[in-house]
Design a protein around this nucleic acid. Sequence first.
DNA 1: CGCTGGCACTGTGGCCGCCCGAGTGCCAGA
DNA 2: TCTGGCACTCGGGCGGCCACAGTGCCAGCG
Lengths: 335, 335
Amino acid sequence: MNHPRRLQILQAIVEDYVHFREPVGSKALVERHRLGVSSATVRNDMAALEEEGLITAPHTSSGRIPTDKGYRTFVDQIAAVKPLSGPERRAIQSLLDDAADIDDVMERTVRLLAQLTHQVAVVQYPHASGVTVRHVEVVDLGAGRVLVVLIPTNGRVAQRVAVLRAPLEETQLLELRARVLAAAVGRSLAAVPEALVAMIADVAPPLRPAAATVAETVGALAAGGAEHRMVMAGTANLARSTGDFHLSIGPVLEALEEQVVMLRLLSEMEQDARGVAVRIGAENAAGPLSETAVVATGYGPQSKVGVVGPMRMDYPSTMAAVRAVARYLSRILGG
Amino acid sequence: MNHPRRLQILQAIVEDYVHFREPVGSKALVERHRLGVSSATVRNDMAALEEEGLITAPHTSSGRIPTDKGYRTFVDQIAAVKPLSGPERRAIQSLLDDAADIDDVMERTVRLLAQLTHQVAVVQYPHASGVTVRHVEVVDLGAGRVLVVLIPTNGRVAQRVAVLRAPLEETQLLELRARVLAAAVGRSLAAVPEALVAMIADVAPPLRPAAATVAETVGALAAGGAEHRMVMAGTANLARSTGDFHLSIGPVLEALEEQVVMLRLLSEMEQDARGVAVRIGAENAAGPLSETAVVATGYGPQSKVGVVGPMRMDYPSTMAAVRAVARYLSRILGG
DNA sequence: CGCTGGCACTGTGGCCGCCCGAGTGCCAGA
DNA sequence: TCTGGCACTCGGGCGGCCACAGTGCCAGCG
């Protein structure tokens, strides 16, 4: 497809269809865009585009709408993602800057992105890979119960009560605490269990059962900290989009709530030179998402942020918003 | 309204309308329920019920559907909430019993309730009132930065980095830690700030600036821990319910995402002798929720759990499910 | 060779009139 | 007080009609 005018026409069709939400015809096209040719010529080109599978006519003698492949070509056409406007950038910054904890950051981010794009926004919690242990605390609760708290560098503190076979003296507990700290702090979450097993062997035999229990608990917490979670906002936007087209909202909502599916999809997407990744229609595995488009990008070490919407979406703006939000997110979490 | 047969007819209308989702006529009524009278008699009673504002006819010569007031009367009629079936109870128990942390409990609960009721489920995080401080940890990060971790009894650990004017010696930090622990542990979250202010005065003068900073941080964390949050699941069920009726899904989704609104509504609802509270249609403040019904109940000290759905819902089952889930939740969080 | 104006063609959607059926209200009688 | 019967009334489905938007194709022109 190296016919400049046809590309231009495809682009115009996508834009108009996104804007007016109805099939676009040759006449409307020449009226709204300065194509410099007559509608008959446009018709010929449209026939060619249809031949190539980039657009399709819902029925004879109706305007054309882009196909999945048409959207794909359009998106690939976009050379550089335009930056956001000043006010938008400032809005992002001021909103995210005074977030309290990580939950707050996620919550604000996802709402912001939903509002910016008018789509459903999805933000994955910072990935645990690269996250190390900042601190471990072992607190005696009495009666052989100890509270184990794991504080990773990503801020997702986890804690659990462990029940020991027998109560410990305070000095024993302090020693155990010191050992655990020495073994775990600074290690990556994935490496923690192994390090703790080594620690058990080092410890005085009478302390071993307790050490094993605590080690196991810390290990479980570390594994849990690596959990993949996400937050979501703007589902109401789906209702809007879905209203006038036969994209049924129910299955999409289900897929979104089933976080596993979404998280896998996000992790599969690899951003290109422009800093975003786009999946359109059937490019998402068959299923409820096969009638939607996903625009996503990474932030931080290897987490993802993105939006889900109808294929008929404003790709340039959406891509810009997603990228901008991801950048601020990286900056905030990095600092 | 003390006419037994008319109440029975109202009940039958509600049940049939919930089941078949279409206006119910006198003939269908006598066929499906053993009313012991003819359709003409039912018609007379229906006219009376309409007079009382309990049912209404969408148009002349169509069956009747219940009004808000009709549903209300129906719900008030339900004397005792029937218990859940054995398998259902076991499902709840086994699912909730092996939840890891508080987030996991919330997540599982809300999904479970959505699945049981086929509605949108909403669970408020345990309310902080009655929650006390289990532990506070102050960890030196070097360069005058300390990590302050607050562990309340409800499991919502909060942590934040505080920056001191000047670095502390380890012994100083340990003393400060001990002071903070002594002042805060066992106190309710609300009482923590006050107690810490008193602590500052007690501390040796050189340590006071650091004590003040840490106290402020702990206080902020305690206040944050009292935050009201909720989780939600089953929004896809809304799409189903909304499909065949003119309840538009968009505004309802918006209201649900705007947690503030939902949380206030939940907190306003007071359960009755049967252990649940029901709000129907216009009983919810004007707005998007005025076309929905909310069934909720409390759990734990004063938190809420409930579902939101169309007014045309199976109230007996829904009330039973909500109550059962709330009970298990109370039990789990209490232990 | 590519572009253009013109023309015949074709589904879609709105509109109208029609009829059928479900369900009602009312009345007279048991 | 209940019942059977009857006339009435909308709503919705069906078919025919027309106007419109937009197409494909063709012949002519630069």
